[in-house]
Design a protein around this nucleic acid. Structure first.
Length: 909
RNA sequence: GGACCUUUAGCUCAGUUGGUUAGAGCGUUUCCUUGACAUGGAAAAGGUCACUGGUUCGAGUCCAGUAAGGUCCACCA
């Protein structure tokens, strides 16, 4: 077996093992009916995207779950893939075209789409390659893309089916329009931003009473040409007399518009009168509908004003038009005031420009299975972690609105609807839509395509990714399902994602699963996943979101180069507590790397300490143990190993990944390396204890590697092989990890029962060692090993010291420990095993020593006073549980004994 | 306007059902290259747990309120 080098060099190790794993089919998700299935579908990243820190966290956690499942003997499947990301990808390619002074319209639809595919072939797959570098153990043979032919077919099949079931309709409604991307957006794609606007006060002259006016306040004077009424509250006494009267539109084409009454108007806002522009405001649109008013659209799709705005404004951009409208109103005297006004404006999430409410024909979905989707989470069929997100989810479902699923883009799934040539799409009714003579809806299109025109719009990207958990498993094609193991792997086990896409993706997947999968079967067979783990959002050191434009996001590949994939994984998991946002600090990644190096060197120490025995199975290692040689340290470390194993088990059950990593870190670094390995150095000197000690190290290292493997797969695989834990060259993942109770069971079979009393004695030894070291440090003796300690102690403690003499002396840095009845004038430390004196009587400064002891005494006095007052409290004594009471009494006794000893030492000085 | 989260050491954060002297990593100070590791070891300094009240024998932990910061939803022109 190769020697373990002095420091861990991740690069070659990662490359080597990743190739071996892939070559060995280690990531293949196989149907195995004698095993429990465990499956995850990746949240598909944008096909042309690159890896961000968010992806690193998200995918590391998925990999942790998948690798742990393999160790637990489950048949694990992690399905990878990418998303076509309609708007984002199309925008990127259009930007490229613009560099050559072209638009997509210059190319035409099909050549443009071909161009996007070229782009996808060039850039797509980068992110998947990056995931491999991170160590993601996806079943790459199953990689899917939402625009793959098979997947696309499933998307369109769902559309036609939902249409058939009456969930899909076409409607002319006010939608969120992005003037930059020239498409409709769903409500979820609009984000509200605070804006500094101007509130203009505009008066409208009454037709019948020239010189008399009604005044409104508006932030959008450029839409006045689209005004069709002024609305007031029906109960507003100021305006009762005016209801039904006409006023003149003060801007744009001349018109008289009525004053109407509608309860939606807030009499307390502004003047209490509201201008009604149904084409450009949602509330106005609804009022317009109620009153049968026309909607006049004064904007072009790109946000410039059109002919309806009148010649003075036509052609201007909406923001220019606003200024121009204000100045025109000012000139005509209709503008009677302006004031600064802070309001919120909706922005397109992707293009980052203000959206326009715009009246257009769109395809809408009435969500299916809304009630059942609520029940799935409320009744615990699907469990959210942290649980509180379920409230957000339920609230959204309570107030759910129909989903605008059509997009005026070219890159996406073109809606499988054909209109008979000659049909006027503007006047199509709901009944026409269902008339096969007029409209054709099918997967493959009409048999006489020459007589039909296909719908131009494509589907919202989320209207393809909401099928991800079952469409990636072959649904609904029976043969494909068979190949993919649909029956075995669905529902998937855990979804790992960010809470920012609860509405976009999580909720919609749940509804899709319930609607389409295994109709008629119980809910737990139809849900897409059983657990949803929501990660936090990674922020920079200042707490800002990481973003490309801020340039505050480190490149994960740089971090991998610097700290290794395992270091990055360990670091990112350790700073990601459940459900909280994460402030990224690179030093945590560095400490991940340091931990790997520590692990590496502890294994190196094991290798250098003696021959590797038979390590190929836990039984073989257990057979090398010599229970008769066990000392307190052996009991203690095995106890800590069991406790840690139990804790990691618990963490996995409760999705507490960072707690698992911290438990492993503390156990391995403090309990094993800082203590057990150090005491081993004394044990390994003795032939009688050497072999047993090596076997214990093997037991601990083997189990630790298994526990750590999901988090840091590369280094653990390497060490697993270097130390001979691998059986016949099998991967570490092929080993079944044991839980704490089965380990304890295996111990018991060997006649080994952990002596908890012995293990507890280690705590007292540690206390003595630590205090003795501090005493040495106080006297600047840390480096010297030739110090002699005199110990004043009782027989019982001296027995313990003698039994562990070599180790204790080594740990203290003592040349010798000598029991004395009495010591004069030497610096002393009162410890759990007696009073330890430094053999330095000649050089001690009594004044400094007295100060040192007095300080300790003062601190102790405070604690004694606290304990005493608790015990003096009648209520405490009568009501506290006996164990707590007993603990306090014992504590007081110990404190008192220590105090007596300190006082004796002081007197002796 | 509604909902949720956060507030603990200089910094970033743990602290599970209330119970000894509140922990970790980083940073700081002192000492140490002794054959696993200086990517390391030993020791130390550093906290009235945001504030106010309540429940309790006992509160960082439970309850109510206040303040500051943050997130999401809705949005009155």
């Amino acid at each position: 077996m190769a020697d373990i080098t002095k420091s861990y060099e991740p690069h070659d190790v990662e490359k080597k093992w990743y190739a071996s794993w892939v070559g060995g089919g280690a990531f293949a998700g196989r149907v195995a009916h004698d095993r429990e299935p465990y499956s995850i579908v990746i949240p598909p990243p944008n096909v042309t995207g690159v890896l961000t820190m968010g992806h690193v966290l998200n995918n590391t956690l998925q990999d942790v779950l998948i690798r742990r499942a393999r160790l637990e003997g489950k048949s694990a499947l992690w399905v990878p893939g990418t998303d076509h990301a309609g708007i984002a990808t199309q925008t990127v390619v259009e930007r490229e075209l613009r560099k050559g002074k072209q638009t997509r319209h210059d190319l035409g639809r099909d050549p443009f789409i071909a161009k996007v595919w070229d782009w996808r072939h060039e850039k797509g797959g980068i992110i998947l390659e990056q995931l491999r570098r991170l160590g993601a153990s996806c079943d790459w043979d199953r990689t899917q893309f939402t625009m793959d032919p098979d997947y696309s077919r499933r998307v369109l099949e769902v559309f036609t089916e939902l249409f058939r079931r009456g969930h899909i309709y076409r409607g002319k409604r006010l939608v969120n329009w992005c003037p930059a991307s020239l498409t409709a957006l769903s409500d979820e794609e609009v984000i509200m931003k605070p804006a500094n606007s101007v509130l203009y006060e505009v008066r409208y002259e009454q037709v019948d009473s020239p010189g008399e006016y009604i005044t409104v306040k508006t932030t959008r004077p450029e839409t006045i040409p689209g005004d069709v009424a002024i609305a007031v509250h029906p109960g507003d006494p100021r305006y009762t007399a005016l209801i039904g009267k006409l006023v003149r539109r003060p801007l744009g084409p001349l018109a008289s518009i009525p004053i109407i009454a509608d309860a939606a108007v807030d009499p307390a806002f502004g003047s209490g009168a509201l201008k009604i522009t149904p084409a450009h405001d949602k509330a106005d649109f609804e009022i317009g509908q109620r009153h049968g008013l026309e909607a006049i659209d004064v904007l072009n799709p790109d946000g410039t004003l059109n002919a309806h705005a009148g010649p003075a404004l036509a052609g201007l951009d909406r923001f220019e038009g606003r200024k121009k409208a204000a100045s025109l109103l000012r000139e005509s005297g209709a503008l009677t005031g302006e004031e600064a006004y802070a309001n919120n404006v909706g922005y397109s999430e992707r293009a980052d420009v203000p959206i326009e409410p715009r009246l257009t024909w769109q395809w809408w979905l009435r969500y299916p299975k809304v009630e059942e989707a609520k029940a799935a989470v409320r009744d615990g069929h699907i469990r959210f972690h942290p649980e509180r997100w379920s409230k957000v989810y339920l609230h959204w479902l309570e107030n759910i609105q129909d989903w605008c699923i059509s997009r005026q883009l070219w890159w996406g799934h073109r809606i499988p609807v054909w209109y008979r040539k000659g049909i006027d799409r503007e006047t199509l009714t709901e009944a026409d839509l269902r008339d096969p003579e007029k409209v054709h809806v099918s997967l493959d299109g009409p048999t006489d395509p020459e007589n039909w025109m296909q719908e131009d719009d494509v589907l919202d990207t989320w209207a393809s990714s909401w099928l991800w958990p079952f469409a990636t498993l072959g649904w609904p094609d029976k043969e494909a399902e068979q190949r993919a193991g649909f029956d075995y792997f669905y529902p998937t086990s855990t979804l790992v994602t960010g809470p920012d896409i609860i509405f976009f993706w999580v909720a919609r997947m749940i509804m899709a699963g319930l609607e389409f999968v295994r109709p008629g079967e119980p809910i737990e067979r139809r849900i897409p996943f059983k657990d949803v783990y929501f990660t936090g959002i990674i922020r920079d050191a200042q707490g800002r979101k990481m973003s490309k434009s801020l340039g505050n996001s480190p490149d994960p590949l740089d971090l991998i180069a610097k700290y290794g994939a395992d270091g990055l994984r360990f670091g990112i998991v350790s700073i990601a507590p459940q459900g909280q946002d994460i402030r990224f600090q690179e030093d945590r990644i560095e400490s991940g790397k340091n931990f790997c190096n520590k692990l590496w060197n502890a294994c190196r120490f094991r290798q250098m300490s003696g021959p590797t025995g038979d390590n190929s199975s836990p039984e073989a290692i257990l057979a090398r143990l010599e229970p008769a040689q066990f000392d307190a340290d052996d009991h203690a470390i095995l106890d800590r190993l069991l406790v840690t194993t139990r804790e990691v088990d618990r963490c996995f059950a409760q999705f507490e990944f960072s707690a698992a990593v911290q438990a492993l870190y503390g156990f391995f670094w403090n309990d094993f390396c800082d203590w057990y390995v150090e005491v081993s150095k004394a044990k390994l000197q003795e032939e009688s204890t050497k072999m047993n000690c090596l076997a214990i190290q093997d037991l601990v290292l083997r189990q630790t590697l298994l526990l750590l493997h999901p988090f840091i797969p590369f280094i653990t695989e390497e060490l697993w092989n270097l130390l001979g834990y691998s059986r016949d060259g099998a991967f570490i993942q092929d080993t079944r990890i044991d839980n704490a109770s089965s380990i304890a069971g295996a111990h018991a079979m060997r006649g080994l029962v952990i002596d908890l009393e012995a293990a507890a004695a280690i705590a007292r030894i540690k206390d003595s060692v630590s205090r003795a070291r501090a005493l040495k440090a106080d006297y600047n003796l840390a480096s010297r090993r030739d110090v002699r300690f005199f110990v004043i102690t009782v027989d019982r403690d001296w027995t313990l010291i003698e039994a562990n003499l070599a180790k204790i002396a080594r740990m203290m840095g003592a040349a010798e420990l000598v029991r004395r009845e009495q010591v004069e004038g030497a610096p002393a430390a009162v410890t759990a095993l007696g009073t330890f004196h430094l053999d330095l009587a000649a050089t001690v400064d009594p004044v400094a020593e007295r100060q040192r002891l007095a300080k300790e005494l003062a601190a102790l006095d405070k604690h004694i006073a606290g304990t005493q007052s608790r015990l003096a409290n009648e209520a405490f004594v009568s009501k506290a549980p006996p164990a707590v009471l007993e603990g306090a009494r014992q504590q007081l006794a110990e404190q008192q004994a220590k105090k007596d000893e300190l006082e004796r030492l002081l007197k002796a000085l």
